[in-house]
């Protein structure tokens, strides 16, 4: 019972921090929208052209936008010792990471869902592609949260060149983009591609708590 209460408290704290940092979440969404506008203006008014490459652009910008808040994933909780204190109160680092991934998915990635239909309008995407985009983004963003967790924990002591963290996320997000965009191709097998995406999400959800916890422990030893 106490354990469930601790997990509930963890999410309550994350929710409060989300509302205190809501400006930075909106900044990420604004970055996404402005980048979409730049693409639309740069590509011109050819409706067919926009429609054919719109999905790829939206996905690429979603990945880029999600790397903006990468640094905040663990940095403050690591630097001020909150991670150690939470661990000392009976929650393993692996579970802390798992809860952090879920809260990142809920409080950082999910707000992007609101922006997807609006962005799709700018590229004049057909309605079934918008549905597919929303569906694949829900699964893909969970993978991105796992990747962000691993990348952020890997770079906890890296004060000089944090861009490497973004590079790691971008590199590993390529398969996510391939399968997510591929769903809309005429001859693609929707069910198989969705199953592959779900499989990837489950694999990352299984691996990343252990990997990130190992990186956090390593960083704590060298702090």
């Amino acid at each position: 019972m106490f354990f469930i209460k601790k997990i509930f408290l963890f999410f309550k704290r994350e929710l409060k921090l989300f509302f205190r940092n809501i400006v930075s979440i909106f900044s990420n969404i604004l970055f996404f929208f402005l980048s979409i506008f730049i693409f639309v203006f740069a590509l011109g008014a050819d409706e067919q052209n926009l429609k054919s490459i719109g999905l790829g652009i939206i996905w690429s910008l979603l990945v880029l936008s999600s790397t903006l808040s990468l640094r905040k994933f663990y940095e403050e909780d690591f630097n001020n010792g909150v991670l150690v204190i939470i661990h000392m109160r009976g929650i393993s680092y692996e579970l802390i990471v798992f809860l952090k991934i879920l809260s990142h998915f809920l409080f950082v990635q999910v707000p992007f869902l609101i922006s997807i239909p609006v962005a799709s309008l700018l590229f004049n995407l057909p309605i079934y592609e918008v549905y597919n985009l929303i569906f694949t983004f829900i699964i893909g963003s969970l993978i991105l949260s796992c990747l962000s967790s691993m990348s952020a924990s890997m770079n906890l002591l890296n004060k000089a060149n944090f861009s490497i963290g973004g590079i790691i996320v971008l590199l590993f997000s390529v398969p996510v983009i391939i399968f997510s965009v591929g769903i809309n191709e005429v001859d693609s097998d929707f069910k198989s591609l969705i199953n592959i995406l779900i499989g990837m999400a489950l694999i990352f959800l299984g691996i990343s708590p252990w990997a990130s916890a190992a990186f956090i422990k390593l960083a704590l030893r060298n702090k």
């Binding site: 409060k16 921090l17 205190r20 403050e76 630097n79 001020n80 010792g81 150690v84 204190i85």
Partner: peptide, 11 residues
């Protein structure tokens, strides 16, 4: 109690 503060700045 560490040599730095564990309270969350934004809370």
């Amino acid at each position: 109690i560490a040599d730095h503060n564990t309270s969350s700045r934004e809370l």
